[in-house]
């Protein structure tokens, strides 16, 4: 079997497995899995920039928050339906990531991390500043009646699960396709050796900017989906920990792999859940990963057993 058909098979098997999970798993875990899939979309968006392009951002909560508040405020204050709401979330994330990418990409390395961190902090504080509309830390709730798409009630557990799964599947196949296109190959080339890619005549700046915008928009899609499916928007989702989470998920699952973000999100979600929301677990995992397994779970598997892994 060729590598490409293996990859397609793997992704399809994963989606099928997730469909089966709904019917097999107890209600509580199935509910968790819906949440995990939404966060895995966030992690996949982050992975596109960090894992494939090699740019470490510490401010992705800004894009997640842009999607969340883009949809949330449009529906909450603008009174639009879910469809245009998602569009509003995506456009907000697109514009924000375009501006941030344009400015932040003038820097590199440590400066890039700090610039993205600062932008995200400014974004978080802006949410607090306009507390009259966003209700700050407390947040606001989308009424159940408005959370419907094409007549399907998304606040229902089963509909919510499959909506999350459909979005997850779309993003998974999109990224699986994207990283095999010449564009995706060029991103990997930038990660491996930026100077060399530049010497070969690729427009590095343009590629990086598109990577930031795609990554930010996918993260924004995740934020909008979270707000729509789980019905609330809070300032905490735009704060520093939510910039750290996708980094954690991707590092644990395996940077630069298509299914690593999902695996990392799954493990980390249950690890934090099991420890009662204690962030110390996250800290220990981060240090341990940095020390012992910089390539993550899937990176290790790929190195030892299956070199074809996407």
């Amino acid at each position: 079997m060729s590598d490409i058909s293996r990859i397609h098979l793997l992704h399809a098997a994963m989606v099928v497995a997730l469909v089966i999970c709904w019917f097999v798993l107890p209600v509580y875990h199935a509910g968790n899995l819906a949440r995990i899939m939404v966060f895995a979309i966030y992690a996949m968006g982050y992975n596109l920039l960090f894992g494939y392009t090699g740019l470490l951002s510490l401010g992705h909560a800004l894009f997640f928050g842009a999607g969340m508040y883009g949809l949330g405020l449009a529906m909450h204050l603008g009174g639009v339906f879910a469809g245009p709401g998602i569009l509003a979330g995506l456009i907000t994330a697109l514009v924000v990531s375009g501006v941030v990418g344009f400015l932040a990409l003038r820097t590199s390395g440590v400066a890039f991390m700090i610039v993205t961190l600062m932008f995200a902090q400014a974004g978080y504080l802006t949410v607090l500043l306009f507390g009259t509309y966003t209700r700050g830390d407390e947040g606001f709730v989308l009424p159940q009646a408005t959370r419907a798409l094409m007549g399907i009630d998304l606040s229902d557990a089963q509909n919510r699960y499959f909506a999350a799964l459909i979005l997850f599947g779309i993003v998974l196949f999109f990224i699986g396709w994207l990283v095999r296109t010449p564009f995706g190959r060029c991103l990997v080339a930038i990660r491996e050796n930026e100077e060399r890619a530049r010497m070969l005549g690729y427009d590095i700046t343009r590629h990086k900017l598109i990577a930031v915008i795609l990554s930010g928009t996918i993260s924004g899609l995740s934020g909008a989906a979270y707000c729509l499916l789980f019905g609330s928007a809070q300032a905490a989702f735009a704060a520093v920990p939510y910039s750290i989470f996708p980094l954690l998920y991707v590092l644990l699952g395996g940077m630069g792999t298509t299914i690593g973000p999902f695996v990392g999100t799954l493990f980390m979600f249950y690890l934090i859940d099991w420890s009662g929301g204690n962030m110390m677990v996250a800290g220990v995992v981060l240090v341990a990963l940095a020390l012992f397994a910089p390539t993550g779970i899937l990176g290790e598997i790929r190195r030892r057993f299956t070199p074809w892994l996407p």
Partner: peptide, 8 residues
Amino acid sequence: VATIGLLY
């Protein structure tokens, strides 16, 4: 990454 871990 490691110092973020240390922070937490």
